[in-house]
Design a binder for these strands. Structure first.
Length: 291
DNA sequence: CCAGACGTTGTT
DNA sequence: GTCTGG
DNA sequence: CCAGACGTTGTT
DNA sequence: GTCTGG
């Protein structure tokens, strides 16, 4: 899941939509930190794309700290392990299972050093697989009260993640990964995993404020999709597979609604999902069937 | 002791 | 089939 | 996530 | 770096 995303807002728009309550009880817009990676708006971004990431500024190993408590910083999506220095090969992870992060050698160092972050997206893509058929229908998932009018009132989807800082020759590279968990029953028809989504300021603060909230507590406080308010539930529509499947096609048409290629998909799924809705033919997969 | 792994995804 | 690159 | 490569020789 | 397996 969560292997392709979109974020078409410019840096200033993102900052405005990431306003948070500071420790002085004031609303603050996070300042952008500049490194040698560069965030650019993206319509169809695969792992390795540079994404906008919100983090506490205190664990970023900066020469000077930013003027805001939280800040935005460009990071490579696809976390490089902390134990690799220099040319890291291609060992990276763009998703991290929340079930595994506490016992994993890869993620424990990030958790222990407070490298918790929020990956800023406008939406993400998911490919629905159908058992027994070699067909995959891509969908775009997003939070936009106006539906698919991408020009106005864009709402962001904030994904809980972890990050790392690794040496890359003479420079320093920031990289991050998105936490995933089993999909809620209303989402399972599309895919059996989903990202951990943060909606409220409190949820964002719980995850980023690593000095006040230690990692085990922070993980416990991560919200479950099935508990989120109706206004935060994701919308979706089918998208054009010819465009979206090709990660080199970084164009707005990737996000546009398209007819699902197969009749059963368009009749059952080409509407916004309802809370509690389950598509009985596509239960979550399991690694091994019980029985 | 040293060597080698360290991850997710999909999927039946 | 499996790895790399986008 | 998907798409595309998957190789050697000789050498400006 | 740190844990597991030999």
């Amino acid at each position: 899941m969560c292997g392709r995303l979109a974020c078409t807002l410019n840096p200033d728009e993102i900052s405005a939509k990431c306003e948070y309550m500071s420790s002085k009880e004031k609303l603050e817009k996070p300042e952008w930190i500049h490194n040698d990676q560069e965030y650019k708006p993206v319509f169809n971004g695969p792992p390795t794309t540079v994404v906008a990431v919100l983090s506490s500024n205190k664990n970023l190993k900066l020469d000077k700290t930013s003027s805001t408590e939280f800040c935005l910083i460009p990071m490579r999506w696809g976390m490089l392990p902390s134990f690799k220095t220099e040319a890291t090969g291609n060992f990276h992870t763009h998703n991290a299972r929340i079930e595994n992060i506490l016992k994993s050698n890869l993620y424990k160092p990030s958790l222990m050093s407070g490298k918790r972050c929020v990956i800023i997206t406008e939406g993400y893509y998911e490919w629905q697989t159908t058992p027994g058929e070699n067909l995959k229908q891509p969908f775009f998932l997003y939070q936009n009260p106006d539906g698919p009018k991408f020009e106005s009132k864009k709402n962001l989807i904030k994904l809980a993640g972890l990050f790392n800082i690794s040496k890359d020759g003479d420079s320093v590279k920031y990289s991050c990964t998105v936490l995933t968990r089993e999909a809620d029953s209303s989402m399972a028809w599309m895919h059996y995993r989903m990202p951990v989504i943060l909606n409220t300021r409190e949820e964002v603060n719980n995850w980023l404020n690593y000095e006040e909230i230690e990692y085990k507590e922070a993980i416990d406080r991560l919200p479950k999709y099935e508990d989120c308010k109706k206004e935060f539930r994701l919308k979706h529509h089918a998208v054009n597979k010819t465009f979206v499947n090709n990660s080199s096609c970084n164009e707005a048409k990737c996000m546009q609604p398209a007819a699902a290629k197969y009749a059963y998909l368009s009749t059952l799924h080409d509407t916004n999902i309802q809370v509690g809705y389950t598509y009985s033919c596509l239960q979550p997969f399991h690694f091994r069937p019980i029985s």
